Measured scan of single mutants.
Amino acid sequence: KKIKIDLKKGPEGLGFTVVTRDSSIHGPGPIFVKNILPKGAAIKDGRLQSGDRILEVNGRDVTGRTQEELVAMLRSTKQGETASLVIAR
C-alpha cells in the first residue's frame, strides 16, 4: 500500500532516521524508516512508522539512490517548507 505523507519541517527537523537494507554490488538496496524521533515533524503528524519503505521524496523516485543521497534530499528541505514523501507499508 502506498501512502503520501507531507511533513512540514520545523525547528526540530523532520524527526526520523533511515536505514538501507540488502545493498549489493548491483547498487543500494531499498531505504526504510528506522526510527521516529521523540521530537520533529514525523511524531507530530503521526502517520510515518518505523519499517516504512521510502519510495519518493518531493516527487523524485529514490529507487537506486544511496542512503546519503536520500538524506541530502531531505536536508535540502528548509525549515518551514514541506517534505513530500511517498512510502510503502
Rank of each mutant, 00 (worst) to 15 (best):
G59Y: 12
A72K: 11
K9W: 14
P28T: 12
T77H: 14
M73W: 09
K2N: 15
L70S: 03
L55T: 06
T66Y: 04
R60Q: 07
V57G: 01
G40F: 02
A42S: 04
R65L: 04
N35Q: 12
G10H: 10
T17H: 05
I43E: 07
G46I: 01
S84P: 02
G64T: 05
R21N: 10
M73L: 09
L14Y: 12
P30H: 11
L7F: 04
V86K: 11
Q67I: 04
A88N: 15
G46Q: 09
D22N: 06
G64C: 06
G27L: 10
V33T: 02
L70M: 11
K8I: 08
R65S: 08
I87N: 05
Q67Y: 14
P38D: 14
V33A: 03
E68P: 11
D61N: 11
L70Y: 05
L37C: 10
I54P: 00
L70H: 02
K44L: 09
G27Q: 10
I43A: 05
S24E: 13
Q79T: 06
R21E: 09
K34F: 03
K8E: 11
N35C: 14
K2C: 03
R89Q: 03
T63N: 09
Q79W: 06
S76Y: 09
L55P: 00
A72F: 03
R75G: 10
S84F: 11
S23T: 08
R65E: 06
V86F: 07
A41K: 03
K2T: 03
I36E: 01
I25W: 03
V62G: 03
G29M: 09
G59M: 06
K1N: 15
G59I: 01
R75Q: 01
I54H: 00
V18Q: 02
R21T: 14
L48V: 03
K2M: 06
K34W: 05
R47M: 09
Q49C: 13
D61W: 05
K34R: 11
I3T: 03
N58Y: 03
E56I: 09
G64A: 08
L14V: 04
R53T: 11
A41Q: 11
G64K: 08
D6V: 12
I43C: 05
D61V: 10
G27P: 10
N58D: 10
A83M: 13
P30K: 11
I36T: 03
V62C: 14
G51F: 11
V86D: 10
S50G: 13
L74E: 05
T20V: 10
V71Y: 15
L55E: 12
G29W: 10
H26A: 11
K2E: 07
P38E: 14
K39W: 04
K34Q: 13
S23N: 08
Q49L: 09
Q79V: 06
Q79P: 09
L37P: 02
S76V: 13
K34S: 14
T17D: 14
D61A: 11
G64W: 07
Q49H: 11
I87D: 02
R65N: 08
G80C: 09
H26M: 11
G10E: 15
E56M: 11
T20C: 08
R75P: 04
R60G: 09
G10C: 15
L37A: 09
V71A: 14
K78C: 10
I25Y: 13
G40R: 01
R53N: 14
D22E: 09
G59C: 03
R89N: 03
V57S: 02
S84Q: 09
A88I: 15
K78W: 03
G46P: 02
L48P: 01
T20E: 15
E81G: 10
D6H: 13
A41C: 07
T82H: 14
T63D: 06
A41P: 15
D52R: 00
P38R: 11
T77G: 10
D45S: 12
P28H: 04
T17M: 06
V62E: 03
A83D: 11
L14R: 00
V18M: 15
D22A: 05
D52K: 00
V62Q: 05
Q49W: 08
L37G: 10
K9S: 15
N58L: 03
G27A: 09
S50T: 08
G27R: 08
D22W: 03
T82Y: 13
P28N: 13
V71N: 15
K4C: 12
Q67W: 06
D6W: 13
L74N: 03
T17G: 10
V57H: 03
L48G: 00
M73G: 06
A88H: 08
G59H: 06
K8N: 12
V19C: 14
R53G: 10
A83C: 15
S23M: 12
A83I: 07
Q79A: 06
